[in-house]
Amino acid sequence: MAYKRIALVCSFGLSTSLLVQAMERAATAAQAKVDIFAIGTSELAERAETTDVFLLAPQVRYMRPTVEKYGKPVGVVDGMIYATADGAKALRQALSLFQEEGMQ
């Protein structure tokens, strides 16, 4: 089974990198086959091909219609999960997005 690629999107990819580390820890603990990385909004177009699910930081949730055009599942991270860098909850959200995608 191929690794699922999860992109966390914020303005420059700086603030989401905190959450990426937390999510990686959660993924390791759960042995989930995922590849998680942070990107800035200016990298969206070039990373769209190599991403399986987008999680938007709450402050760039206005990008949702733009990102949805890439045809991949898109979610917005809840503000409190984002602020406290709750990796497990964010990862769960990403995994749920895959599931919903698979069911369609």
Binding site: M1, A26, A30, Q31, A32, A88, L91, L95, F98, Q99
Partner: peptide
């Protein structure tokens, strides 16, 4: 408790 049960997400399991 912050744990993830991969049985809920079979497409990403090991």
């Amino acid at each position: 408790n912050g744990t993830i049960d991969l049985h809920h997400y079979p497409s990403c399991g090991t």
